[in-house]
Design a protein around this nucleic acid. Structure first.
Lengths: 165, 165
DNA sequence: AAGAGATCGTTCGGGTACGAACTATCTGCC
DNA sequence: GGCAGATAGTTCGTACCCGAACGATCTCTT
């Protein structure tokens, strides 16, 4: 999606395949670039910050949400992180095995499982998050500072459009 | 990341955890929303357009790139789609088993594998892509038309920042 | 022409990723 | 109180997803 080939090349190639049909190339470009950007940032973070600690992107997100909101229910972590509870269950087991988080049943509601960081998990996040934020700053460096608020809003608008469907 | 909790709540919670450290909350918000948006769009597409045909997002991207550029080398598909050649190898096998693509060795370079759509694959894309583009249009509907070009540029700027690292 | 080094696709192992089915628990209504 | 329905988390099956290692092939240099 808009990788080696330029957008114009892609457009004319698509137009050939679907001549006669009306297509929204602008929407196509935004959706396409949205994924390239998200993927690129994720890979960048995994290579530069996460790989030295043998952490995946998802594992880091789980640690981050837990760190900020602990003790926290698993359904909250899944919602904040944007993945399913099935996925979270596996990642939590991985992180528990490695000694970064702990699970415990809620005292007030037997259905809930509360997640906390272990001391090792807190040490890890205290060390890792500043590095992570430094890379985030690097990633947005090429966006005009005046347009950064608009950028965040635009992305929120996309989330909103999809949620209310 | 910025799910149920507002951004301000998250910020003050993070600031408490790391008081004294200088953090770029704007960069954090953009990176965070970038992932929420990409994930939301992907899930939306999978539910509305792809699930009826039992296709995953990645499988669709592979079909799309192949459809536009066939015959095409696998390394091009991986680069255009933004995933590793290891991932592509598995997805291609799945699509080959289901009769949507075919692999064949290049005549001029024995290392290369050329990928083509089968007639069934072409029929599928001709039917599927207009639906897909309609959903893309829906996704960007909440972005001011005047800002859409800037939006695409902004996403490209992020890709560029990460690539040149 | 012959080896060193680069390139391409596959395979392997471990870790996500999701929907569906399942168990356990809670809540509401009678 | 007791049962229907909702809710939370795990498990299961299938399908990605990546880095590393691998064998096959090409290219470059001499």
């Amino acid at each position: 999606m808009a990788g080696e080939h330029t957008l114009t090349e892609t457009e004319s190639a698509v137009a050939q395949k679907l001549d006669g049909l009306v297509l929204d190339f602008e929407a196509m470009a935004i959706a396409s670039n949205l994924f390239r950007a998200a993927n690129a940032v994720r890979n960048h973070m995994e290579r530069t910050v996460l790989a030295p600690h043998d952490l995946t992107w998802t594992a880091f997100v789980v640690l981050w949400v837990t760190w900020i909101w602990e003790p926290v229910e698993t359904r909250i972590i899944a919602a904040e992180g944007g993945f399913s509870k099935a996925t979270l269950s596996g990642v939590l087991t991985t992180l528990e095995t490695r000694g970064f988080v702990s699970r415990s049943k809620s005292q007030t509601d037997g259905r809930l499982v509360m997640v906390r960081l272990t001391p090792a998990g807190r040490r890890l996040m205290k060390k890792l998050f500043p590095k992570f934020n430094a890379e985030e700053r690097y990633v947005v460096a090429h966006i005009d500072p005046k347009e950064r608020v608009a950028a965040a809003d635009m992305l929120r608008a996309i989330c909103f459009a999809v949620k209310t469907s």
